[in-house]
Design a binder for these strands. Structure first.
Length: 418
RNA sequence: GUGGGUGUAGCUCAAGGGUAGAGCGCCUGACUGUGGCUCAGGAGGUUGCGGGUUCGAAACCCGUCACUCACCCCA
C-alpha cells in the first residue's frame, strides 16, 4: 500500500470543516483591516530563501525541500511566505502605488523537520504583510489584527509577548556586549548554548535550561542598547497597544529565528499546545525589500500556524450543519421520479442527496438518518403511479402526501429562508 | 540528525509463554414499504514486517518499518 509522506497529513471532511471556520475568520478580518489577498507560488528559486531568511539559519541549513529543475537551476518549496510576497512586491513594482500595500495570504509551507505535536513537514500559515510605513501604528495595526483573529476564534490561554531587536545598527553593538558578558560564564552554560555563542548568541537568552536562565539573569538587555530612535519606536508601539487595550508581556529575551527581523518582534503562545507552543509570531523587517533588490521599504507582518489553531479550536465555534433533504427513491418507476425531484431540489438551492445503492425503503431511511436529513421524500412505485410523493419529517415522524410535480418547490419554501 | 513511548478487528483498547477478547461501529432478523431505541443472531485478525529463542510466541530477544512525543529549531 502506498501511504502518505511522513509529516504530511490528509485533512478529512470532518476536520476540513474546522479549517473552513479558521480560514473564513482570516479572510473576514483581513478584509476588515483592509488587507488584500495575495497568492504567490509555493516554490521559488532557492536563492530567494537563502538571502531573505538567512544562510546560517536552521531553516536554510537543513530544513528546506530543495530540488533541481530540469535546466539545473535550484528550486525550493517555500518554508515561509514572506520571501515570496516581498519578491512579488518588488517584481510588480507595487511600491509605486500611492496607497499603502497590505496583503494577506493563506497556504501550505514546507520544512523538513521531525514531526511532532503541532509541527508537520507540510503545514499551513495565515499571514499578513504591510509595506511602506515606518509608523509604530503600522506595528500596532498588525498586532491588533493578529490578536483579534485569535480572540474571535476563542482560543484558550493565549499570551502575547513583545520585544524590540533594534535596528540594523543597534544589533551588532549589542551582540558584542552580550558576547563579552557570556564569555565570563561560558562554563555555566549548557552544551547547546556554548555552541550558540558561536552561531547565534542572541538565542542563548531564549534557552529554557534553568542554569542558563540564571546565568543570563544579569545579562545586558537588548532594550538597554537601543538607539534613541529604536527606543522611541518601541515605546510608541507599546503605547499604542495600551491605548487599544491589547494585553502583552514585555519579554527582553524574545528572539526570533529569522535573520530579517528588525525593531518590533512579537509572538503569541498558548498553554494548550505541546512543546511547540507558538501560535503565531511576526515582526518588522525594514531591510528585507532592499536586501532582495527592491527600493528601501519598511515592512511588518505576522504568520500564524493553522494546524496549531485547529488543535485548540473549541467545538463551540463550529457552525451547526445545514438541514438537508433525502430522496428515498426505489422501484422501477420510483427511482426515475425521485431523481427528477432530486434534480429540482438542487436547482432550487436545497442541499439534498439520495443513495443509489439502497434498494428498500428501510435502507433509505437508515441512510437518511445517518446523514442527519431533516426531511425525506419517499417515492416508491405506488407513489410514482399516483403522481404523489410522501414527505416525512424525520424529527416528528409526521408524513403527508404531495403532488409529485410540486414536491421540490414545497420542500424548498419550507426550508429556505424567505 | 538524536532520544523515549507505542504498533492486536473499521475505531478505542484488553490478554505479559499454553484455544486471540471486549466496547463501539458494521451486517441480518424480530418489523415481507418506514430511521433512531430494544432484543436475538452474524461477519470481521497472517497480533506492522523479517528473523531468532521455545514442545509452544501477540507476549521474550535481534533487526526493520510505521506512528507518536520530546530534543534541536520553529508557525
Amino acid at each position: 500500500m502506498i501511504h502518505g509522506i511522513k509529516g504530511v497529513k490528509d485533512l478529512l471532511p470532518e476536520e476540513a470543516a474546522r479549517w473552513q471556520v479558521i480560514e473564513a475568520a482570516a479572510r473576514r478580518l483581513s478584509t476588515l483591516y483592509d488587507y488584500r489577498e495575495i497568492r504567490v507560488p509555493i516554490f521559488e528559486v532557492t536563492e530567494l530563501f537563502a538571502r531573505s531568511i538567512g544562510a546560517s539559519t536552521d531553516i536554510v541549513e537543513k530544513e528546506m525541500y530543495t530540488f533541481q529543475d530540469r535546466d539545473g537551476s535550484s528550486l525550493t518549496l517555500r518554508p515561509e511566505a514572506t520571501a515570496g510576497v516581498v519578491r512579488a512586491y518588488i517584481e510588480h513594482n507595487l511600491g509605486a502605488s500611492p496607497t499603502a500595500q497590505k496583503f494577506f495570504y493563506l497556504g501550505p509551507m514546507f520544512r523538513h523537520e521531525r514531526p511532532q505535536a503541532g509541527r508537520l513537514r507540510q503545514f499551513h500559515q495565515y499571514g499578513v504583510e504591510a509595506f511602506g510605513s515606518v509608523s509604530p501604528w503600522a506595528d500596532v495595526e498588525v498586532i491588533s489584527l493578529l490578536w483579534r483573529f485569535l480572540s474571535e476564534l476563542h482560543l484558550p490561554g493565549l499570551t502575547l509577548e513583545i520585544n524590540s531587536l533594534g535596528n540594523a545598527a543597534d544589533r551588532p553593538v549589542y551582540k558584542e556586549a552580550l558576547l563579552d558578558f557570556l564569555k565570563g560564564r561560558e562554563k555555566t552554560l549548557c552544551q547547546n548554548c556554548q555552541r550558540r555563542m558561536g552561531t547565534n548568541p542572541l538565542r542563548v537568552l531564549d534557552c529554557k535550561v534553568p542554569t542558563c536562565r540564571t546565568a543570563t539573569e544579569e545579562a545586558p538587555k537588548l532594550t538597554d542598547h537601543l538607539s534613541p530612535q529604536s527606543r522611541q519606536h518601541f515605546q510608541e508601539v507599546i503605547g499604542g497597544l495600551d491605548a487599544l487595550g491589547i494585553p502583552y508581556l514585555l519579554n527582553p529575551r524574545l528572539v526570533r529565528g529569522l535573520d530579517y527581523y528588525t525593531l518590533t518582534t512579537f509572538e503569541v503562545t498558548s498553554q494548550h499546545l505541546g512543546a511547540q507552543n507558538a501560535v503565531g509570531a511576526g515582526g518588522r523587517y525594514d531591510g528585507l525589500v532592499e536586501t532582495l533588490g527592491g527600493p528601501k521599504t519598511p515592512a511588518i507582518g505576522f504568520a500564524v500556524g493553522m494546524e496549531r489553531i485547529a488543535l485548540m479550536l473549541p467545538a463551540s465555534t463550529l457552525p451547526s450543519p445545514g438541514k438537508m433533504v433525502f430522496v428515498a427513491a426505489f422501484g422501477q418507476k420510483g427511482v426515475p421520479a425521485g431523481m427528477q425531484i432530486l434534480h429540482e431540489l438542487r436547482s432550487l438551492g436545497v442541499q439534498s442527496d439520495s443513495d443509489y445503492r439502497a434498494l428498500t425503503l428501510k435502507a433509505h431511511l437508515r441512510q437518511a438518518d445517518r446523514l442527519g436529513a431533516a426531511f425525506v421524500l419517499i417515492v416508491g412505485d405506488d407513489e410514482a403511479e399516483k403522481g404523489q410523493v410522501i414527505l416525512r419529517d424525520m424529527a416528528s415522524k409526521e408524513q403527508h402526501e404531495l403532488p409529485l410535480s410540486a414536491a421540490a418547490h414545497s420542500v424548498a419554501t419550507r426550508l429556505l429562508p424567505a
